[in-house]
Simulated scan of single mutants.
Amino acid sequence: MSGPKDLDPSSSPRALLGAELRHAREQKGLSQAELGQLVFVSGSFIGQLEAGSRRMQPEYARLLDEVLETAGFFMRNCKAAATSKYPAYFVDVAELEAQSTAIRQYTPLLIPGLLQTAAYARAVNRAYDPTTPAETIEEWTEGRMDRTRLLDHPTKPLLWVVLDEAALRREIGGPAVMAEALRHVAGLVRRSRIIVQVLPFSAGEHPAMQGALKLMEFADAPPLVYFEGVRSSRLEDDPATVTQLRFVFDLLVASALSQGKSLALIEALAQDYVHEDHP
């Protein structure tokens, strides 16, 4: 019996790779959960690979080839399925955002990427790597702006953001850039496209002081939580972890300003930045 054929990169490589994974798993008589145990991931993760919603990384491809005896097929085809304009550590997150039905996010220091303006994103990218050529900074900025087009849809996904007051007061790119950025956020709120609440300094201690978090929900897959660090990231689908961090987000919402007071603060700070730029 002939083995699976290498994938055509011009087609939908992730979907084809997922279909081949499902075929190879069923040939072995394994459930998604059973295969997940053999390669040290959850059954839902295998399901996401088969659906093409998660990128197959080389370490998983190697294990799958060993367990399913596919003669290196998955390793050979990883590169075809991994093409993306985003940094390697962020590829899965950007694509999962586009598939999500709801995103709940807390950011302690920055306006999140989906809400950024080009000027704000450019300043952030430059700060991340001051020695990067200008054309590379522009490519990164364009990639981030591509992500913001997710909000062109009038209702999907639901985006609920808790912004720490520090993210509003940390001056990124100068007063004019901050004024534009905050007005952009306020505009999205006023168009009822997003929900934004500000977690004020006066709230004191809170359960997410150790960092940012993003929860994503899907129509046909389990929810995920995303953690981001310095040029690194991690996706977690463990149900207990996701449930615990959803509770953390709910606590942040309870401590944050109301939507009306949050919008008033954002617009007031935007006006302050305008005055700072034009004394």
Rank of each mutant, 00 (worst) to 15 (best):
V189I: 15
R191Y: 05
Q197A: 08
L182A: 04
A203F: 11
Q210M: 14
I195P: 06
A212Q: 13
V177T: 04
I194M: 08
A212R: 09
P207I: 14
V198R: 12
S202M: 07
L215D: 01
F201Y: 15
R183Y: 06
P207H: 12
A208P: 12
M178A: 03
R183V: 00
L199V: 13
M216T: 09
H206G: 12
F201E: 02
V185S: 07
I194H: 13
R193I: 09
A179R: 00
A179I: 00
I195T: 11
A212M: 14
A181E: 04
L182R: 00
S192A: 15
A181I: 10
V177Q: 01
P207W: 13
A186E: 03
L215R: 00
S202Q: 09
R183I: 00
V177G: 00
A203K: 06
A186I: 02
L213R: 09
H206P: 08
F201H: 05
L188C: 10
H184I: 02
P200A: 05
V185W: 09
G211Q: 08
V177Y: 00
S202G: 09
A203Y: 13
M209P: 04
A179G: 06
M209C: 13
A179Y: 00
R190N: 09
S192Y: 05
P207S: 13
P175Q: 09
I194A: 06
L199N: 08
G187H: 02
R190H: 07
K214Q: 15
A179T: 01
R191H: 07
M178Y: 02
A186Q: 04
K214G: 15
L215Y: 03
E205M: 15
I194E: 03
A208R: 09
L188Q: 05
I194Y: 03
E205T: 08
